[in-house]
Simulated assay, not measured.
Amino acid sequence: MRILHTSDWHIGRSFHGNSTLDALRGVLATLTEQVREHRVDVVVVAGDVFDSATPAASCYTMLTDVLRDISDAGAQIVLTSGNHDNAARLGFMAPLLRDGIHVVTDPARVGTPITLTDEHGPVHFYGIPYLEPIVVRGVWAGVPLRTQEQAIAHAMSLVHADRAVRGGRSVAVSHCFAAGVEASPGVEREIRTDLRQGSLDVVPLSAFDGPDYVALGHIHGRSRLGEHVRYSGAPLHYSFSEAGKPRGSWLVDLDADGLARVEWLELPVPRPLVTLRGTLDELLSDASHEAHIDAWVCAVLTDATPQPEPMRRLQQRFPHCATIQLDPQGRVEDDGRSYRARVVAARSDGELIDTFLTHVREGEGASADEHEMLADVIASRAAAAHEATVPA
């Protein structure tokens, strides 16, 4: 049996205020072609199908189109819910879908597989939706479920019990943060938030012993925790911290004895991501940046003082400049005096103006050219004032 493992589609997620629907639609169209080209039997989607618990209507339309296209390409689908999904909303559509599209969102179904067959016999797919401890306590009464580690451990105990009875080959699908993976900063922030709320913790790799393959979701980069335990990552880059990391899915072959082969299938990157660093003038003029004209750009500005209309000016050169970060360099160290104290201490009009500029520019006073210009203006005004006091 040939399986394509994907996850974390995050349909509906925006990228710094820009819709990703069209880009994702194109990438998933390529994935569908890979299903057809490689004669995939089953596509596994390991959670976070949507980015929001309340996705827009266009997100449902896109999911319907993609699932239909994958089904038309000849594959069955096993799809589970992730922490971004609303399990009830996602599961509501399950009975309405055509045969061969299986949506698993109900924790009460954990341990009851979706059984598909090939020439070697049955393969049991055990879908484990995202398990929030406070929710599943009502499903598994009497089981201590304070952490997700405990929830996954109990879910896998149900899987093991069923496997012992049924026998044969098996695949587990789960959405969690398993031991031994390195998350991107964006996902790490999400994990730390969930940890503070007590709803997510690290699940040990040993929890997934037993099945022939374990398809995981939640981490946006591909990761191999063991030969049979892997993350596929997201099909799109959803943050600048993911720039340069491959996008794709795992092509998994099961033979009569279990896991036979795993291959990585690349997906296209619709628009590359790049972080450019320098002063605004450098970013606008450096010829080496021509290669990034069509990329998503994160501009890290090192100007010592705020620059006028930086986004407008950057987008004239980089139409897809998505965000600006400020990292000013070369500021004058604060001497601890208040602005009032500096004004009082000024010994001339030039020093007074320079004190004002230093204050409003957050540490940078007048430049050499500005000093020269100010000196000329002050001298001219002094001369005019002197002439006005001299009798004609």
Rank of each mutant, 00 (worst) to 15 (best):
R342P: 03
A295P: 01
D201W: 06
E242Y: 01
A299F: 03
E290G: 13
F15V: 07
G167S: 11
L28M: 12
D106V: 08
A295L: 02
G82T: 12
A295H: 15
V344E: 13
H154T: 05
G167D: 12
P246T: 13
H120E: 14
D65S: 14
V297M: 00
Q329F: 07
H5I: 10
L24S: 06
V187F: 01
S241W: 04
T117A: 13
G91P: 09
R137D: 07
L254D: 02
T30W: 00
A375R: 12
A291V: 13
S232V: 02
P308Q: 03
V332E: 14
H386N: 11
L273S: 05
T112S: 04
L205F: 07
V143H: 08
L216R: 00
E309D: 14
I293G: 00
V377P: 07
D376N: 09
L301R: 04
G365P: 02
S239V: 10
E190K: 08
H5C: 07
I101T: 10
V377L: 13
D48S: 09
V360Q: 02
R25F: 01
C321I: 00
P95I: 00
H160V: 11
T6F: 02
A23G: 12
V269Y: 01
N18I: 13
A73F: 01
A73Q: 00
S223R: 13
A379Y: 02
S338T: 15
E242W: 04
V159N: 09
G233N: 11
Q316P: 00
L79G: 01
G167F: 05
A388T: 11
T193V: 14
V135Q: 03
D65C: 08
F177D: 06
A287P: 08
V390A: 12
S184P: 03
R169A: 07
L205W: 02
M311Y: 00
V78L: 07
F15G: 02
A382Y: 04
H320P: 00
E290L: 09
A234G: 00
T147G: 11
A322V: 02
T80N: 09
L280V: 09
H124P: 10
G74Y: 02
D41H: 12
D41L: 09
F125T: 00
H175M: 08
A155W: 04
F318Q: 02
F208W: 10
R347K: 14
W264M: 02
L31M: 15
P133D: 06
P144T: 10
H175S: 02
D327A: 13
C298Q: 14
L158F: 12
A215Y: 09
S157V: 05
Q150L: 02
W9I: 12
S380R: 15
I11G: 03
T64F: 03
H124M: 11
T54C: 07
D369F: 04
R169C: 11
D118Q: 06
A207T: 15
G111N: 10
L195W: 13
T32P: 06
R313N: 01
N86L: 11
V360I: 11
L276V: 08
L205E: 13
A53T: 07
M93K: 03
H359E: 15
T147D: 05
E333H: 04
R247W: 03
P133C: 10
W250M: 10
I114N: 06
P129N: 09
F318H: 04
V229K: 00
S380A: 13
D118E: 14
T115G: 14
H124Q: 11
A287I: 05
C298L: 15
S206A: 15
Q325H: 08
G168L: 09
D194Y: 05
D72C: 09
L267S: 05
D69V: 08
V262K: 08
